[in-house]
C-alpha cells in the first residue's frame, strides 16, 4: 500500500476495500467477509441511549492520546453521562488526500485498543477521502448506542436545593495540554490530556442511582459551562468553592500565564455529578475507589435564589461565574 492517502482510496473500489481491510479491520477487529450494510445488534429490553459526536481536533496526536482514542472516549462518555451501558459504536473517517497512511493506522489502532480494553465493539464504519485542502488531515464522527438500567434516570430537572456537586478529578487538563501544545509554549510540561472512558466510573453509582440527580461530562467550555447549563435547566443557583476545585499546579500556573481560567477549559475524562446531600459522601467514596476518580471532590452545592453560578473565591469574597463568552478555543476536540 502506498504511504499517503490518495483520492482513489475513497473511490469505493479495490483501493478502498484494501484500505478498510488493512487499516480498519486490522485495528478494530471484525471479519470483512461477514460485512453487511448495517450491523445488527441484540438489545435486550430497557431504554436505549443513542448519541453522536464529531472530532476535528488539531493536532491529531497529543500527550495522553490522539483523535482515535478521543473519538472513542467522547461518545462512550456521552452514553455514560445518561447512565447507559455502552453496547456498540460506529466510526466514520473523513480523510484528506495526502494523509500519511501510517498515521491513520496509528489512530485506528489506538481506537481499537480502547475498544478491546472496554469490550465495546466498533461495529459499523465508513471512510471518505476528500481532495487536499477540503479537510485538515482527518475528521472522525462516532456514534454510540447503549442501554439504560431500569432504575437510572439522570436529568437536571431532578435537582433539589442542598444537593452537592462532585467532580471526578482535576479540571482543565485536556484543554491546557492542547493549548500549550498548539501555542508552542516553551515550558516543560508534564500535563497530559485526561482523555479516558468513564462508563465504568458512572456505573459504580448504579446502587445509589436514586440519589444521583444528573451527570454530565465537562468537555468544551469546561466545568463553568456545565454549571451554568445546570443552573438554567434547574432554575436554581449553584455555589462553588474555589478552594475545593481540583486543579493541577502546573495547569493553574500555565493558565495564569496565558490568561485562561481552568474552570472553562475542556476536559475529556471528567464527569460532574449532582448528588442528593445525604448520599454525597457515599458517592464521593465510591468514585474515589475507581482509577478514573481518584481525585474526585465535592466542589459546590445547589442553592435557591437567582439562576446563576456564584463562586466563593479563595479570598472569601463572592463573584459570578458567567457562561463563557467570546473566544472559545477552536478545534479542541
Amino acid at each position: 500500500m502506498s504511504d499517503t492517502i490518495r483520492l482513489a482510496h475513497g473511490s469505493g473500489g479495490e483501493m478502498t476495500a484494501r484500505l478498510i481491510e488493512e487499516v480498519f479491520y486490522t485495528a478494530l477487529g471484525g471479519d470483512p467477509k461477514g460485512a453487511n450494510d448495517s450491523a445488527i445488534l441484540d438489545l435486550s429490553g430497557g431504554r436505549i441511549a443513542f448519541t453522536t459526536d464529531s472530532f476535528v481536533i488539531s493536532p491529531l496526536f497529543f500527550p495522553g492520546g490522539d483523535i482515535g482514542k478521543l473519538a472513542f472516549c467522547g461518545t462512550v462518555n456521552d452514553l455514560a453521562a445518561v447512565g447507559a451501558r455502552p453496547i456498540a459504536l460506529s466510526a466514520s473517517f473523513i480523510i484528506e488526500e495526502g494523509m500519511d497512511v501510517a498515521e491513520l493506522k496509528t489512530i485506528a489502532l489506538s481506537m481499537g485498543e480502547m475498544s478491546r480494553e472496554t469490550g465495546i465493539p466498533v461495529v459499523a464504519g465508513d471512510t471518505k477521502v476528500v481532495d487536499k485542502g477540503s479537510a485538515d488531515k482527518l475528521f472522525i464522527t462516532t456514534s454510540g448506542i447503549g442501554v439504560i438500567p431500569d432504575q437510572v434516570d439522570y436529568h437536571p430537572r431532578h435537582t433539589r436545593e442542598g444537593d452537592k456537586i462532585i467532580i471526578s478529578g482535576t479540571m482543565g487538563d485536556h484543554g491546557y495540554c492542547i493549548t500549550a501544545l498548539r501555542e508552542g509554549i516553551d515550558i516543560q510540561s508534564s500535563v497530559q490530556s485526561d482523555c479516558q472512558p468513564l462508563h465504568g466510573l458512572v456505573a459504580l453509582l448504579n446502587p445509589i442511582s436514586a440519589a444521583v440527580r444528573t451527570v454530565r461530562d465537562a468537555t468544551r467550555g469546561g466545568v463553568g459551562t456545565v454549571l451554568n447549563e445546570w443552573a438554567r435547566q434547574s432554575e436554581k443557583s449553584i455555589l462553588v468553592f474555589e478552594n475545593h476545585l481540583p486543579v493541577k499546579d502546573e495547569v493553574k500556573g500555565g493558565c495564569a500565564l496565558l490568561g485562561l481560567d481552568p474552570i472553562y477549559l475542556a476536559n475529556e475524562g471528567k464527569m460532574l455529578f449532582i448528588i442528593a446531600a445525604d448520599k454525597a459522601d457515599d458517592a464521593l467514596a465510591i468514585l474515589k475507589s475507581h482509577p478514573a476518580g481518584l481525585d474526585s471532590a465535592i466542589i459546590g452545592e445547589v442553592a435557591g435564589g437567582k439562576t446563576q453560578v456564584i463562586m466563593e473565591t479563595e479570598w472569601g469574597t463572592r463573584r459570578v461565574v458567567p457562561t463563557p463568552r467570546g473566544e472559545i478555543l477552536p478545534r479542541i476536540c
Partner: peptide, 25 residues
Amino acid sequence: CTPENPVGPCMVSSEGTCAAYYLYQ
C-alpha cells in the same frame, strides 16, 4: 457590544474595562 461582537476596544481585550465588567458582572 459583547465580547463575541465587540463594538469598542474596551470590550475586546481580556483586560478591557468593559470585558472585565461583563465577565465578572
